[in-house]
Write a protein that binds this DNA or RNA. Structure first.
Lengths: 206, 206
DNA sequence: GCATTACGGGACATTGTGTATCGTTACATC
DNA sequence: GATGTAACGATACACAATGTCCCGTAATGC
């Protein structure tokens, strides 16, 4: 449920009787959701506001997504469906710094805090939705970082028994703490510092 | 604003004309807030519910705290006013593991996720309140960890130029990511693993 | 043409927040 | 003991937002 491209049900033939849904509305709703999210944050987003900005009626939205957090998750997944960059410079440290610079930039955007915090709060109350968010948004991003780490292991720059999940949380957690919990801006050196922590903590045993 | 012990204004004489506030109500309201928070999470807490459980009217609550997040912050500060343990075993690694075990226990409580996530979301929308929460709740806890790190530096177990703020986020951030963002339980070894990251990342230069 | 479904508009019930207004009660001062 | 002031419980209120329902209309396949 709450997929990016809604519907198609379980039938192999996607065609249903009756008037078909207007695909342009899907696009307009998701685009409006993202625009409002960036402008007003998670709390400032209302279904009414999305409907107005997308030029559709409210039932048209509820016909597609069952709730506000589900709509937000769909919009984020939709926006990020392409943008999972694959970084491979040949050096683990350079790769990690590039990954972290990207992450710092994301987290430093002024709206990020309000969007992330609000969404995480609603996810905590809806396990199904949380599962969708994790599997369709977070996990693909984490997998890209794992690729970087995997290559580091292959080149002998990291110990072979690195705990990948832990390493990822070690990279992102400190940024999250500072940007979202403390509410303080990330400085430029945060990327280097977190990258170097990984190198020090998981250095290959000599 | 939004202090734990409300009021006393700026006058040196706390006594104001008129009927004084009933101090037992303060206690009852904060206790009810904590109880509901633990039982129903941040989203499940309503001012009505607190009023009913505390046996007071709603205006009695609004007379003391201006909003729901302000009340929650006051309750958390109130509950934690004593409990900032000072750990000193003589070994940095043992100290850090003890600190982290305590943190893991806190974060693993089933209500923690819903309370923390909901509160952080509201704090992002209210900078004044966020300042209160940070200065009266988070900062004292961080200071206790800094004490542990400071002693580690003094004993030569850590490099002298450790970035204390970064080190704290490095200790707590990964736990926060896993418990709150991913929504997965923390395992027992999380304390050791994060502690060892600090030792590896900030080892004194030889 | 007919069944079926989407559409916009709007009404609706529900829930929660925060404010305001009662009559009443507790305390200090005169 | 009378008076002023402010807290108290109860309750009504305005407001905002969620999610549902129903209407008349439009689009599609059979």
């Amino acid at each position: 449920m709450t997929t990016d491209e809604p519907v198609a049900e379980s039938t192999s033939v996607p065609r249903r009787p009756g008037r078909p849904r207007d695909a342009r509305h899907d696009e307009a709703i998701l685009a409006a959701t993202l625009a409002i999210l960036r402008r007003d944050g998670y709390r400032g987003l209302t279904i009414d506001g999305v409907a107005a900005e997308a030029g559709v009626g409210r039932p048209t939205i509820y016909r597609r997504w069952p709730s506000k957090p589900a709509l937000v998750v769909a919009a984020l997944v939709h926006a990020a469906r392409l943008a999972v960059p694959d970084i491979d410079t040949g050096s683990l440290r350079r790769d990690l710094i590039a990954v972290q610079r990207h992450q710092v930039e994301l987290m430093n955007s002024p709206d990020n805090r309000r969007v992330t915090a609000g969404l995480v709060a609603d996810l905590a109350a809806d396990p199904d939705l949380a599962e969708t968010y994790v599997s369709r948004y977070l996990a693909p991003r984490r997998a890209a970082v794992w690729q970087v780490l995997r290559r580091g292991v292959d080149r002998g720059e990291l110990a072979a028994d690195v705990d990948f999940a832990f390493a990822y949380d070690l990279l992102v957690g400190p940024l999250f703490m500072r940007a979202v919990v403390w509410g303080e801006p990330l400085t430029a050196d945060a990327a280097e510092k977190t990258a170097d922590v990984i190198l020090a903590a998981f250095a290959p045993r000599s």
